[in-house]
């Protein structure tokens, strides 16, 4: 990917212009002659209509890169409670017939892990299958985290994911926000208030929608309460979020 050229180029032109005389009407361009096209005259950027008060963005630009597969796995293990990979595999699978997890080897190629034995290079771009794998793994982690943190009796201080107290029925957005912020910090490592989208509100709507679906008459049976299911989907959303995988 091409990076950081455009803003810098604009900056170069702008700085060159900034050293020139204060804003006046630009001098007329010389008439082209047979000797070739006329040279372009530099003008101060502030003399261009609409740019008089425009702040120059001279910041350096870099696009996002995908978290390496090894980092994704280590983060996953940490979110599972700093367990060893095979321990996570066992716990994620569980003995409850849930079919939440298969084996690590089933996911490695799709996660973009290189296979040096056959010179298969690292996958450093997302694709739909990788997204499917992120969802598969995310569902397993979040569902087990709900079981461990929200259904169990683990003290708050020991909860890796849902480190907040009980969930009142009919949660309001005011109740939701600080709890969501805990999850937001857990997965995306910054406060939800700084998100560039209307994130808290969106995720609250997601939570409410899930709760409503699970409360509805005829809803499929679930091992979670509606509120637990709601938090599970919030967890899915953050663990699968573009800002989780790209940095």
């Amino acid at each position: 990917m091409i990076r950081c050229t455009f803003a810098l180029a604009a900056l170069t032109l702008a700085l060159g212009a900034c050293d020139a005389a204060p804003s006046t009407a630009p001098a007329p361009a010389p008439t082209p002659t047979d000797a070739g096209p006329a040279p372009v005259q530099a003008v101060p950027v502030t003399s261009i209509p609409g740019h008089e008060t425009l702040t120059q963005d001279a910041t350096r630009k870099e696009g996002p890169r995908l978290m390496p597969a090894e980092t994704y796995i280590r983060s996953y293990l940490a979110l599972f409670g700093n367990l060893a990979p095979l321990e996570v595999q066992t716990r994620a699978r569980g003995a409850d017939g849930s079919a939440l997890f298969d084996a690590w080897n089933d996911y490695l190629a799709a996660l973009g892990l290189p296979d040096y034995r056959v010179d298969q290079p690292r996958g450093n771009q997302t694709n739909a299958l990788m997204m499917a794998t992120f969802e598969r793994l995310g569902v397993a982690l979040c569902d087990r985290a709900v079981e461990r943190d929200l259904r169990g009796t683990l003290p708050l201080a020991q909860r890796v994911v849902f480190a907040f107290d009980g969930t009142p029925a009919n949660l309001t957005e005011t109740d939701f926000a600080p709890r969501f912020d805990v999850l937001h910090r857990t997965f995306l490592a910054y406060p939800a208030r700084l998100a560039q989208t209307d994130r808290t509100r969106r995720f609250f709507a997601l939570y409410q929608g899930t709760v409503a679906r699970h409360r509805a008459t005829g809803a499929p049976a679930s091992r979670f309460t509606p509120e637990q299911a709601g938090w599970a989907t919030v967890c899915y959303g953050l663990l699968r979020h573009p800002e989780f995988h790209a940095y």
Binding site: D102, N105, A110, D115, R136, V139, T210, R213, P220
Partner: peptide, 25 residues
């Protein structure tokens, strides 16, 4: 869509319905 084998694609597409539903996801 890079994968090691056909079977692993299937496993990445597996979903459990015991906790949340397809509509939730």
């Amino acid at each position: 869509l890079r994968t090691g084998s056909v079977d692993t694609v299937g496993r990445s597409l597996n979903r459990s319905e015991l906790f949340t539903s397809a509509a939730d996801r």
